[in-house]
Amino acid sequence: MTSTILSLAISTSQLVLGIAMCLSCWRLIKGPRAQDRVLALDSLYLNAMLMLVTFGISTSQTIYFEAALVIGLLSFVATAALAKFLMRGEVIE
């Protein structure tokens, strides 16, 4: 009984996060400007990270935690570098 509740909740939240990823992708494609796309990419990274955490719960494995942490790190670095690029036109001065 309890495990059906849990697995139902996990699949529902994965579905919801999937919809959220699709909406971010829509913004990523539509733009209209470069900063909108970077913001959408950041939000996509966040959704992917949360999705990995739910995968970790559904498989009872903590290995997904490391993957989520790495995605979080990558999202920070990528967005910071892209914002810098928008500002200056180059990443390393």
């Binding site: 849990l6 529902t12 919801v16 990823m21 909406l23 971010s24 939000s43 959704n47 719960i57």
Partner: peptide, 20 residues
Amino acid sequence: VALCLLAGALITLAGTIGLT
């Protein structure tokens, strides 16, 4: 756990709805 998961996923979805 189920309630927290659903709440978190729905709030994140609301955030991306705002984004669009």
